[in-house]
């Protein structure tokens, strides 16, 4: 589990890195092409917007591994540790349920839109939707790992 987690985490980080670079290049290339080259680079806007979509979901999975999602910690920290762990585990179960649904229906919509052409890019809309099942699996693995580790840590 640990090796798998590490592998997934590094893969995710590498993808995020590439997405950020693509985003910067496509937005600035749009300006460069229009203003300096006096031509159009029609793919830049759509590519940048889809990069943001991918970054949102992949980065969200990354933030599960890194435990950086935004939350209120004030109230929950007043409870005794076992209660905290139980609430956290229940919440994680709910979130896992949600992403299981996103995964199932995400695969469905990915399949349905595999023939939908992008306006300017040589990809289909299904490729864009494909991020949802991928990031759902990552988030589920991340939450399972976190829950198991928190109970192990709690016993020590």
């Amino acid at each position: 589990m640990k090796i798998l987690s590490a592998l997934l985490l590094n893969g995710t980080r590498l993808s995020l890195l590439l997405l950020m670079i693509i985003m910067v290049i496509s937005v600035s290339w749009g300006v460069f092409a229009r203003y300096i080259l006096q031509t159009s680079a029609p793919w830049t806007g759509e590519l940048a917007a889809y990069t943001l979509v991918w970054l949102t979901f992949l980065g969200s999975a990354h933030a599960v591994f890194e435990k950086t999602h935004i939350r209120f910690e004030t109230l929950i920290e007043l409870f005794p540790r076992p209660v905290q762990l139980t609430i956290n585990a229940c919440f994680n179960a709910l979130i896992i349920l949600f992403f299981a649904l996103i995964m199932i229906y995400g695969i469905e919509v990915t399949a349905k839109t595999m023939s939908d052409q992008s306006m300017t890019l040589p990809i289909t809309k299904g490729v864009i939707y494909g991020i949802l099942p991928v990031c759902s699996i990552l988030i589920i693995i991340g939450l399972l790992t976190e829950t198991i580790q928190s109970f192990r840590g709690g016993k020590q």
């Binding site: 749009g30 092409a33 006096q38 031509t39 159009s40 680079a41 029609p42 300017t120």
Partner: peptide, 15 residues
């Protein structure tokens, strides 16, 4: 885009 290039303008898409 092709149309406005033929018309002689400098077309590009924008959100």
């Amino acid at each position: 885009i092709a149309m406005f290039e033929e018309f002689g303008a400098n077309p590009s898409p924008l959100d």
